[in-house]
Amino acid sequence: MTAKTFIVTLKDHVAEGDISTVKDAFTKLGGEITHEFSLIKGFSVKVPEVGIDSVKKKHGDSIANIEEDQEVHTQ
């Protein structure tokens, strides 16, 4: 099972305690929080891709977006 890195953005109304709950859901799947953002409510996590949907379904009221981390190029 291959792990990928995802950017998880949380909704503005999410309290600090709820952020910890979402992070714990990813770590219980074998994920590792690799970076926490300071300007937005969010973090990056390296986790097996198969668990993403279950966390999104369980914590959908807190999660605004989950997307695979990718390189960005400018022209």
Rank of each mutant, 00 (worst) to 15 (best):
31 G>Y: 04
62 S>Y: 06
48 P>Y: 12
44 S>V: 01
55 V>A: 07
46 K>C: 04
58 K>M: 05
35 H>V: 10
61 D>R: 15
63 I>W: 13
75 Q>P: 08
31 G>T: 02
7 I>P: 01
64 A>P: 01
36 E>Y: 05
12 D>R: 09
23 K>I: 08
74 T>S: 06
33 I>V: 15
56 K>A: 07
17 G>Q: 06
49 E>R: 10
73 H>G: 08
14 V>T: 12
17 G>A: 02
41 K>C: 02
53 D>F: 01
15 A>M: 07
54 S>K: 10
21 T>E: 09
3 A>M: 08
58 K>H: 04
26 F>R: 07
7 I>G: 00
56 K>C: 00
52 I>T: 13
14 V>F: 00
61 D>E: 15
74 T>Q: 12
7 I>A: 07
39 L>H: 15
54 S>A: 14
30 G>W: 07
43 F>R: 07
65 N>S: 11
46 K>Y: 06
43 F>W: 06
31 G>D: 07
63 I>D: 08
27 T>V: 14
35 H>R: 14
49 E>G: 11
47 V>M: 10
5 T>L: 02
36 E>N: 13
24 D>L: 01
65 N>M: 11
12 D>C: 00
20 S>H: 15
1 M>K: 14
14 V>I: 08
23 K>L: 02
10 L>S: 09
43 F>Y: 04
39 L>P: 09
12 D>E: 10
4 K>M: 08
47 V>W: 07
10 L>T: 05
26 F>I: 08
33 I>M: 06
41 K>R: 15
11 K>Y: 01
52 I>Q: 04
20 S>G: 15
46 K>E: 14
47 V>T: 14
7 I>L: 13
28 K>C: 00
51 G>W: 10
11 K>N: 09
72 V>A: 03
51 G>I: 10
10 L>N: 05
5 T>C: 05
9 T>M: 10
61 D>A: 15
13 H>D: 12
73 H>E: 12
61 D>L: 10
60 G>T: 14
37 F>G: 11
42 G>T: 10
51 G>L: 03
29 L>Y: 02
69 D>G: 04
